[in-house]
Amino acid sequence: MADQLTEWHGQGKTTSVPVRGVPRAVFRRVTGSGSPLFLLHGFPASSFEWAGVEPLVARRHTVVTFDFLGFGASEKPKKHRYSFFEQADLTQALIASLGFEAVTLVAYDYGAIVASELLARELPFRIDRCVFLNAGLYADQYRPRLIQRASLWPVAGRLLARSLTERQFVRSWSRVFSPEHPLDPGTAALHYRALRAGDPDPDLTARLLRYIPERAAHRDRFEPVFTGTEVPLSFLWGMRDPVSGPRIARELRSRKPDADLVEYADAGHCPHLETPERVATDILTRTGLRS
């Protein structure tokens, strides 16, 4: 009997998407019907993290999930210098290839940085709404875990990336889940398998983590988006998150007192994995609003 990850991949397909003049193999799924809704995943996971939310929101939307370059079942070019600007190019190209004139974005963690870049661009399509889940929206309020900070050091980063076992992965990731909704080890093992799929560069996780200094270096481009864009924004926030929880929520409230911010008192860094039904309901409530 196929496990959930195998079924997830079996119901999608890998397609070629041109990114900066280079054709890239990108895994994607398209389910449901209705207005287009893109679910953008975080680090260190893949589109599979939306498995609990996707079928619920697909009742009212055409839902597109995909793996960013270097993640999941998408291409993992060895020795590649990953950038979320490139991931935004990929997302934009994928939307164009599907022929959508307007989309809604739901963006979590790493995906939220990509969504922020898209909001800062002049685009050939319209973004009707963007729903953010826990992410380091403000660089000075973001608190990456020790293993993430260490992974940014050139030598230590390579050593940590090459020695990342499933047990270490599960232990590290479990620390950002709430006590009320702990990480299931079996589910975590599937996410680890997705991370290591395709015999990737042994330095992969260290290379992907370069998004942290890259985001900080471009904060003047991204942070004004959350108060200045004309696109309606919503924020669904796990308040037990030690990485980007209460500090980010408070900063958002101070800069945008009227922000549509939903605080989940019993959820950690991954509300869509911890309480997918509640998150799906709140997404659908917001995609049903008229801007």
Rank of each mutant, 00 (worst) to 15 (best):
T91M: 03
A2R: 14
R221K: 10
A161F: 05
T187A: 14
D128A: 13
T287N: 06
F125W: 13
T229H: 10
R24H: 11
G10F: 13
S83R: 07
G52M: 08
S46L: 02
I127P: 00
D203S: 14
G12N: 08
V22H: 12
G157M: 13
G157N: 10
T65F: 01
E166Q: 15
G12A: 11
L98G: 04
R196F: 02
L123D: 09
L56C: 06
R286Q: 06
V30M: 09
P246G: 09
F125T: 07
D266W: 08
E86R: 10
R221E: 09
R247P: 00
D184A: 13
L39H: 03
R143S: 13
L284N: 14
K13G: 13
Q168E: 14
Y264M: 05
R219Q: 14
D282T: 08
L56P: 05
L252H: 03
S16L: 15
A93C: 05
Y264R: 02
V19L: 08
V103I: 15
G198V: 07
E122M: 01
T287H: 06
G245W: 08
L273N: 05
D184N: 15
R210D: 07
H218Q: 10
R193H: 09
D201K: 15
A265E: 15
T15L: 14
L90S: 11
R149T: 12
R158F: 07
T205Y: 01
V170A: 10
L90V: 09
P246M: 11
F100T: 04
P271Q: 08
G157H: 12
E274L: 06
L164S: 03
L261T: 08
G34S: 11
G198N: 08
R20V: 01
D184E: 15
F68L: 05
V155P: 02
V170N: 10
Q141G: 08
L208G: 01
S178M: 12
E75Y: 05
N134Q: 07
V225F: 02
L236M: 13
K79E: 12
V225G: 02
P179Q: 11
A73Q: 12
V176R: 04
K79P: 00
S178F: 09
I248F: 05
P44V: 02
R20K: 09
F235T: 04
D140K: 12
D266N: 11
M1H: 15
Q4H: 12
R219A: 15
R29F: 04
F132P: 05
A93L: 08
P257K: 12
S172K: 10
L5N: 03
T65G: 00
A217V: 06
P23D: 15
D241I: 01
R286T: 05
T281L: 13
C130H: 01
H272D: 03
D220I: 06
V63G: 00
R215P: 02
A2T: 15
F66C: 03
V17Y: 08
A259T: 09
L159G: 03
